[in-house]
Design a protein around this nucleic acid. Structure first.
Lengths: 258, 258
DNA sequence: CTGAGTTTGTGCGATATGCGAACAAATATT
DNA sequence: AATATTTGTTCGCATATCGCACAAACTCAG
């Protein structure tokens, strides 16, 4: 975080505080204050003030020298989720669909160059999923069907910015990383109203469709499963009407609400 | 937020910034900067600096005069969820159980005088659930079976503090609000290893059991359903072995991990 | 148990940050 | 078009925040 670049009125203390919250994670469920300073590039005294402020506000707890985030931190994300009408509208519709199709369903939005899950309905799967799939989880947009749908909803200028910023790294031998091929895939998926991606970010297939409001694509709705466990192409074909129906129902309700 | 009471080293700017994030919610998905100032008691100039800092960091977006939280804010809660081993361990076990029992299952922790959901698996229900049930959602502890289980895991001193702080307001005619009766119910539930609550916070029944690690109760696992739609007591009896089995599986894994 | 190394807590002086007020500019409403 | 309301900007000021240095506490190896 380059303080010198901040604009006037930018609150550096606040920004530093948020950086400390972000420093917690799967690999660092707890941190000492020296670790917090190291991970954020702050001075130890500063990291200490931030952690003590979080402690006083109830967002962290202290266990000897270790600080851990407390459930109250979920209030911050909950502010967003509870304000997200597409999430509230989609949730029961996703639940109905998952019952029929027996695969987990996700709702995602674009955030920078990544997709971020804002809704999820789990389901029994033949092979156990990555246990870390949560609301808030992120994936590179280009490697997922959800991401391609969302990228397809960008204006040309925004799509150009995406390609300027995204680093198209192959995650599997099948990952499309050539920008022209990726643009073509995004356009094709946009035109045909769905995206199907097979083994570009792991050993999974996924299919996704757009969710729209009066202004355009606001989210993507998708289903993913492990490749090869079933007849993938036939399964995709059976899922598509379900997804399109669910997405249409969500989109229709969104247009009425706003 | 009474600035004058803050301890030395307490970072007021950071605390104010977090207050602005919390001001967003279901009823205020978007705010102007005057509204943000009004809702947080800050000056307009201050609220503006905070919102512009969040804008620059990518946590909010601006639409004319309106500011809205962006999905990136989920990163803050995700820091916590991804660090929460009980959540990761419980999720697949909950998914398996929900498939068998056909009712939604929740994992909750105690936070102040409330329970907060840290895990949830949805299911098809006969009657549509409150659409707003998300991770991060809170309920008064005393009115829920999850809450009674968690209160039962408190030390006597901590339980006394709970009773000092909690406001035991009747939410339905069945809500237990007499402190002595509530203490007795908590103890009974702790002793018998499950809690069953019927229509104390709405028209729902719920049953919950403890999840423990080496230090004691860390979470509660529960199932809830609308009262009267089925034979509630018989259903509870059929659910209990399922919940106990799932909770035992989670608890056993927790003990191995730490 | 001791000593060395590491980490945290504390106090203090300096100053950069954050603040609020006042007024200009822009927007919304009637 | 006029008025009311809200937002943007600038500036001076106060203090909140900062970093440093040293004390205190803790951890670890022998």
């Amino acid at each position: 975080m380059n303080d010198a670049d901040a604009s006037p009125g930018f609150l550096q203390s606040f920004a530093r505080g948020l950086a400390v919250i972000r420093a917690f994670g799967k690999n660092t469920p707890a941190m000492t204050l020296s670790q917090a300073a190291a991970r954020t590039g702050l001075t130890r005294a500063n990291a200490r003030r931030i952690l003590l402020t979080l402690l006083e506000l109830g967002y962290v707890e202290q266990d000897g020298r270790l600080f851990r985030l407390r459930p109250k931190i979920l209030d911050l994300g909950y502010s967003y989720l509870s304000s997200l009408s597409v999430g509230a509208i989609a949730q029961p519709i996703m639940e109905d669909m998952v019952l029929r199709v027996k695969e987990p369903c996700n709702l995602a939005m674009l955030d920078g160059t990544e997709v971020i899950y804002v809704g999820r309905v789990a389901a029994k799967q033949i092979v156990r999923d990555d246990l870390g799939i949560h609301i808030g989880r992120r994936f590179p947009a280009y490697t997922t069907s959800l991401g391609r749908i969302l990228l397809g909803g960008l204006s040309p200028a925004a799509l150009d910015r995406y390609f300027n910023e995204a680093q198209l790294v192959p995650l599997t031998p099948r990952t499309i990383t050539d920008p022209e091929k990726l643009r073509a895939a995004i356009k094709r998926d946009h035109d045909r109203g769905f995206s199907y991606v097979k083994q570009e970010s792991g050993e999974r297939c996924s299919i996704a469709v757009p969710v729209t409001d009066n202004n355009g694509i606001v989210a993507a709705l998708g289903i993913g499963w492990y490749a090869g466990v079933r007849a993938d192409d036939e399964f995709r074909d059976s899922l598509l009407p379900e997804l399109l129906g669910a997405a249409r129902e969500v989109s229709n309700t969104l247009r009425q609400v706003r």
